[in-house]
Amino acid sequence: MTPFEYIRAGSCDEALAAAGAPGSAFIAGGTNLLDLMKHEVMTPARLVDISRLDLAGIAPTDAGTGAGTGAGTGAGLRIGALVPNSELAADPLVRRRWPLLSRALLAGASGQLRNKATTGGNLLQRTRCYYFYDTAMPCNKRQPGSGCAAREGFNRIHAILGASDACIATHPSDMAVALRALSAEVELLAPGGGRRQVPLAGFYRLPGETPQIETVLEPGEMIAAVLLPPPEGDRQIYRKVRDRASYAFALVSVAACLRMEAGRIAAAALAFGGLAPMPWRSAKVEAALIGEAPSPALFDHAADLLLAEARGQGHNDFKIPLARRTLAAVLAEACSEEMPA
């Protein structure tokens, strides 16, 4: 670990002011950042501790706008950036209306970690690529221009979609996959006092030539909240496929939020984890499903669309059939009669 300055922020303004200096990083739960600092994968010169800020509330909002904390119609939800993962998963409203989110959270990490991990920190956790973690190895994400050790290395957990020659790492978050399917937006505070709202769809960036830049966050910008619109579907599933029964990152995960009408798929939002550098969502896949009656052939067609551009790296070739089969299993379950709506 390298020495760093530690500042405990008493207010958002203080935090934003302190984080303006180059080399600063926010620390929330610390469950990811501290590991990375111990390995010297990240070496911030200044830590701005935001864990005591007043951003730990969960409140209903007006549909769509996210405005008016607490006073809205209750159609949407505003989740403070510091809400712990375990609290969010257990929230009665979330469990009732966005069970997908609750399940995705509970599929991640462990009880202890979820108690500490925050909503904002979870969105910004870094990849689990082995070579990113090993400072003896080249990694364009850790050290731009040094090369990618994973492409020719052991890449069983790596991306089959959205990767670039510079980086094939995946985004590890389960929560973000659920939020992507739920069309969440992220509220950001800028150092100068600005506030903006970015859909999760536009929040993450593909690696391209600059895998070190993972989101559209500007330097010093802070996540204040995550905003959920009303769910588009009442049939919600989070399916995580992994190497052990618990406490492992997703090889493939599928978040599904569907609505059925008269035996046909009326609404479908599907997001995928473990496949790409960001939670993956395909408009084509959803369009192909909507208005159709469920059938194995339809699910296969959806998988064709999802995986048209998929490219295995060698050790992770299995993710292509695995994604296809998992998607089919999830859709079959979501469309089934037994699925409690």
């Binding site: 689990r128 082995y130 070579y131 973690y133 090993d134 003896a136 290395g153 052991f154 957990i157 190497d243 052990r244 029964a245 618990s246 406490y247 492992a248 990152f249």
Partner: peptide, 18 residues
């Protein structure tokens, strides 16, 4: 020849649920 999965997050011992 180096060991790629050098931590207990990626060297998968069985956990309670297994």
């Amino acid at each position: 020849g180096h060991v790629v999965n050098r931590d207990l997050a990626e060297y998968h011992l069985p956990v309670n649920a297994d």
